[in-house]
Amino acid sequence: MLLEKLIAYPIVFVVGGAICALAQILIIKTKLTPARILVIFLIIGILLEGIGIYDPINKFAQAGISVPIIGFGAALTRGAIKATAKYGFLGAFAGGLMETAFGIGVAIMASYLVTLIFSSKSKQ
């Protein structure tokens, strides 16, 4: 059990690193802005989940694929599909945000709190 967990770490590192390196190649070669790259990888995540191969990859790579934005896209889709099964047609629009509500909610709250305490600094 412990050994299995330890073996996961190099895999997580390599897969996570490789995904980011792939995005870096896109930046250098195509001069796309970060926002566009984020959307591209998000949609990759949505498609992976949509055709049902995200889960096996996630079992293998774990945080290596769920921490990059691909994981966010997959979570959105997973939630949307689940909610559709439960609530029908309208579930498609609510499910994604329901699934990712933890992350978005905490990010908004933490950003707000940090804003109250700190200010942007000029860079040297």
């Binding site: 930046i27 001069k31 970060p34 942007s120 600094k121 000029s122 860079k123």
Partner: peptide
């Protein structure tokens, strides 16, 4: 934004 972490070419 100033604190946004992105690379400049």
């Amino acid at each position: 934004p100033l604190e946004y972490g992105c690379q400049k070419p």
